[in-house]
Nucleic acid binder design. Structure first.
Lengths: 136, 136
DNA sequence: GTATTTGCAAATGATTTGCAGTGCT
DNA sequence: AGCACTGCAAATCATTTGCAAATAC
């Protein structure tokens, strides 16, 4: 993925810190501020938390990235993708996208409520295959 | 609703503060810590924020109530109900339950992922009928 | 060259903790 | 009686802000 272009398309100047943030975020899929800071410090030992927060906010503002609020966890951030749902394993904390038909749900909600729906935030919680077996 | 019984069933002692919290939470449907504190102070002028937080955490721990994390807003709390979805209007901040078929979505996700799914957190965002008209 | 971004330090805001006194069962 | 709950004050943690120096365009 071309992160320079991605930043320019969203009217943000290209800086090494921002390229690093995007690259780590894409690699991780979803990442918390804390984890992102720990990882990016390995590349830019001088980066400050304030810079990280400012950049996350700038990217949120331009919808380059999206904040996902997860029950009982710190918020996570992902580079914006088409509507999808998330799965959280309460055993091992695995957190992943799942490709299911979100549209059907949104359409139904829209019809019933007469809302014009633009965005969805869906997290399904439970236990992954591995953790189900271990908990027996 | 019998709040005393509800507390006892969840192994929590009955105190006037807790009865007040539950009553306000049920009346509001969903409420933030801030709003809850403002409202409960009218009844118990001496209640402290620390007590409110401790009680919310105790009730969360026993699954008497549930935390709902809403994009761009402070978390809200509701007394536990059967699985459902939420609607948020980005114009007027109306926040409400919507009765749609969450099961279909959960089943699909479960089949695809082999997760055992126990809980869902669903917020759909957009504009209510009124706000759609006003924004023209 | 100008405007924006960075990194630091300090400020703010939200939530938690420790403790002494009070209330529930 | 004994343990849990309350309220206060202080502590902690996450995030934001102001500012001077550095960087992007």
């Amino acid at each position: 993925m071309n992160y320079e272009l991605l930043l320019r398309e969203h009217h943000l100047k290209v800086t090494p810190q921002r390229l690093g943030i995007l690259s780590l975020m894409v690699d991780a899929g979803h990442i918390s501020v804390e984890d992102l800071f720990a990882q990016i410090k390995q590349e830019f030992s001088s980066i400050s938390l304030a810079t990280l927060y400012k950049n996350i906010n700038a990217m949120l503002h331009n919808a380059l990235i999206k904040e996902i609020k997860v029950p009982h966890m710190k918020p996570k951030y992902e580079v914006t993708k088409p509507p999808h749902a998330h799965l959280l394993c309460q055993g091992c904390n695995e957190f992943m996208d799942i490709d299911i038909n979100v549209n059907a749900l949104v359409d139904e909600a829209s019809k019933k409520s007469h809302y014009q729906l633009l965005d969805s935030s869906i997290v399904l919680c439970g236990y992954c295959e591995k953790c189900q077996k271990q908990s027996v």
